[in-house]
Computed example of a mutant assay.
Amino acid sequence: MKKIKVLFFIYEMGAGGAARTMLNIINNLDRTQFEPVLVTLNYNGSYEDDLKSDITFIKLDTKRLRSAIFPLAKVIRNEHADIVFSTIPNYNTIAILARLLSFTSAKSVIREAAYLGGNFSMDMKLRAYGLLYRLSSKVIALSNGVKDNVVKRYNVNPRKIQVIYNPVDVDGIQRQIDNGKIAEEHQAIFKSKGKVIITAGRLVKDKDHHTLLCALAQLNNRLNAKLVILGEGELETPLKIKAEELNIADKVHFFGFQRNPYIYFKHADLFALSSLHEGFGHVLAEALATGTPVVSTNSRPGAAEVLNDGEFGVMCEVGNAEDMAAKLYETLTMTNEQLMQMVDRGKERAREFDAKTIAKQYEDTFIQTIGWSDRS
Score class of each variant (00 low, 15 high):
191 K>M: 12
192 S>L: 15
192 S>K: 15
193 K>Q: 13
195 K>R: 15
195 K>M: 15
195 K>S: 14
196 V>P: 07
196 V>D: 12
196 V>F: 11
197 I>W: 10
197 I>G: 07
199 T>K: 06
200 A>T: 08
203 L>C: 09
204 V>R: 11
204 V>L: 05
205 K>Q: 13
205 K>E: 14
206 D>H: 14
207 K>T: 11
207 K>R: 13
209 H>E: 06
210 H>P: 02
210 H>Q: 14
211 T>V: 09
212 L>H: 03
212 L>E: 07
214 C>Y: 07
215 A>M: 05
215 A>H: 06
215 A>W: 01
215 A>I: 07
217 A>N: 05
218 Q>G: 06
218 Q>N: 11
220 N>H: 07
220 N>L: 06
220 N>E: 13
222 R>F: 14
222 R>C: 09
223 L>G: 14
223 L>Y: 13
224 N>M: 11
224 N>P: 09
225 A>V: 06
225 A>T: 07
229 I>E: 04
229 I>P: 00
230 L>E: 03
230 L>D: 05
230 L>Y: 02
231 G>L: 00
232 E>V: 04
232 E>Y: 10
233 G>C: 00
234 E>K: 08
234 E>P: 05
234 E>D: 09
234 E>S: 08
234 E>H: 11
235 L>S: 02
237 T>W: 04
237 T>K: 14
238 P>T: 08
238 P>E: 08
238 P>K: 03
241 I>S: 00
242 K>T: 02
243 A>W: 00
243 A>K: 05
244 E>G: 03
245 E>L: 04
247 N>M: 07
248 I>K: 09
249 A>V: 00
250 D>V: 03
251 K>Q: 14
251 K>T: 05
251 K>N: 13
251 K>A: 04
252 V>Q: 01
252 V>N: 01
252 V>T: 05
252 V>Y: 00
254 F>E: 07
254 F>W: 01
255 F>V: 09
255 F>Y: 08
257 F>N: 13
257 F>D: 10
257 F>Q: 02
258 Q>T: 02
258 Q>Y: 09
258 Q>H: 10
259 R>Y: 10
259 R>S: 15
260 N>M: 07
260 N>I: 04
261 P>L: 09
261 P>E: 05
262 Y>G: 01
263 I>R: 10
263 I>S: 03
264 Y>E: 07
265 F>A: 01
265 F>Q: 08
266 K>N: 04
266 K>G: 03
267 H>S: 14
268 A>V: 04
269 D>A: 10
269 D>E: 13
271 F>K: 00
272 A>W: 11
272 A>Y: 09
273 L>Y: 04
273 L>C: 05
274 S>C: 08
274 S>H: 08
275 S>Y: 06
275 S>W: 10
275 S>P: 12
276 L>S: 10
277 H>I: 05
277 H>A: 07
278 E>P: 06
278 E>L: 11
279 G>N: 11
279 G>M: 04
279 G>I: 02
281 G>H: 09
281 G>T: 03
282 H>W: 03
283 V>P: 01
